[in-house]
Design a protein around this nucleic acid. Sequence first.
DNA 1: CGGGCGGCCTGGAGGC
DNA 2: TGCCTCCAGGCCGCCC
Length: 274
Amino acid sequence: MPELPEVESLRRSLLDLVVGRRVESIRVRESRLREGVDGRALRRDLAGRRCLGISRRAKYLILEFEREARLLVHLGMSGRFFATTEAEPLDRHDHLIFTLDHGGQLRYRDPRRFGLVRSGSARSFARDPRLTELGPEPFDPVFDGTHLAVRARGRRGPVKPFLMDARVVVGVGNIYASEALHRAGIHPARRVDRIAAARWEGLARAVREILAASIERGGTTLADFVDGRGRAGEYATALGVYGREGEPCPVCGAAIRRSVQAARSTYHCPRCQR
DNA sequence: CGGGCGGCCTGGAGGC
DNA sequence: TGCCTCCAGGCCGCCC
């Protein structure tokens, strides 16, 4: 579900709700996520500590606590991480409940359990390959056309999976890969070794513009995504091609096509993207 | 090493 | 109403 714009929207929405609050207790109702949740470690690392800030790396949310404690949260496909109160009835997929001071709660809800929640120290996170073996953030100045061209060297596969490779650039998932390629006018199946050098800059710019536009609208909600206040994102109505098979391209009017690449749905305009 | 694919899970949608 | 199949925004590991 969540790509960079959704996680960033979640991060921003949680700032007012969580920063400055103290974790009083942690309840693990279901530990079987993508990897097992270690409730004892969560309590050891976080109980009694105040949240000082929230950052994001790729599609990971990182809550920062007193004494260099960290909480890593990944939403997988169907995860939600939201603030509420104990008055809110428990959902069967409310797997983790963080009770905050003043009686509030943070809940992690995830029907498909593809997500990840774990705690650790800032030091351990600095050594975690999940966080260190990642390409640049799309809004980092090092992410530009030259970066894409360099990373494409020696590769021959189609550009869409290339764009979704977190070692190339982080945060671009299945929706925004289709959207960025549409904006850049590049066919998703085009091999990276057949993309003219001059076009990489436009693709880097398209990635940044698409992601920024989505963040501005609070991300894309197709089914599950909500922010920390339970609010859906509004970018779905602005999507140009994703999920719009047969509909007219917003640029030229040609019928949008759906195909399958690396077992994922891909959408493109046959006229704008060659 | 790159890239394709299945698997991890549940639930919603659509066909019959 | 029910049963079946297909599909889903991520990621990992296996395979060639």
